[in-house]
Design a protein around this nucleic acid. Sequence first.
DNA 1: AGTTTATAGAACCAAACGGTTATACATTAG
DNA 2: CTAATGTATAACCGTTTGGTTCTATAAACT
Lengths: 106, 106
Amino acid sequence: MDTFSALADPRRRAMLDLLVKRERSAGELVSAFPGISQPAVSKHLRILKDAGLVDMRVHAQQRIYTLQPKGLAELDAWIAKYKVFWPDRLDSLERHLDKNKGAKKE
Amino acid sequence: MDTFSALADPRRRAMLDLLVKRERSAGELVSAFPGISQPAVSKHLRILKDAGLVDMRVHAQQRIYTLQPKGLAELDAWIAKYKVFWPDRLDSLERHLDKNKGAKKE
DNA sequence: AGTTTATAGAACCAAACGGTTATACATTAG
DNA sequence: CTAATGTATAACCGTTTGGTTCTATAAACT
């Protein structure tokens, strides 16, 4: 599964949103998604790791997941090619959306 | 289907790559993808349009598709929130990937 | 008016996706 | 050593996706 497909699922994006604040163990992420089971979270994490969007390290029985910006940088590079004829108007839209994203709860 | 899901398919991304150079009729896009049928291309275009990634206008029996940067700007805004702790190293990666993308055939 | 051209929609199908429960496997605790 | 904890994997299942062929619709020739 490539980067784009990995990002297609809203729950996986939500996981990245949590990891951007700080690293988390698999268990913490399971708690953060009461709607789905532990194996479901585990599979999402596998997909994010395979896509190069997160890193994982082992700590005792825990698996600690961290954001891996490289995958997102590739996506950013892909978008850059479309910015050639990006209207000025959209830069302000972008800033606006960016600001809203900043105002979020844990 | 949201922006992220719309971009998850490599053929739809390839269609955007073609449209970034110039607008194309549905028929031209069908010719550009010999691997799949006309209705398949038509469905991809529908998805891109619903996601706000392309615009369409009617010209005689033809449907002319153009890139609609707004959808991509939203994606760009989403990524921006992760750039907070973007290592400097990745900016050069981004520039490198960007340069490679520039060197492409029709 | 009738035919051709350009494209979308309907109906259908196999493969992929995201979920579940049950199980395996380390590592830590008792 | 044995039990408990943390997490991944296996097996399975319904839904979605992306493809197909067939058909419908509308504009443009002749």
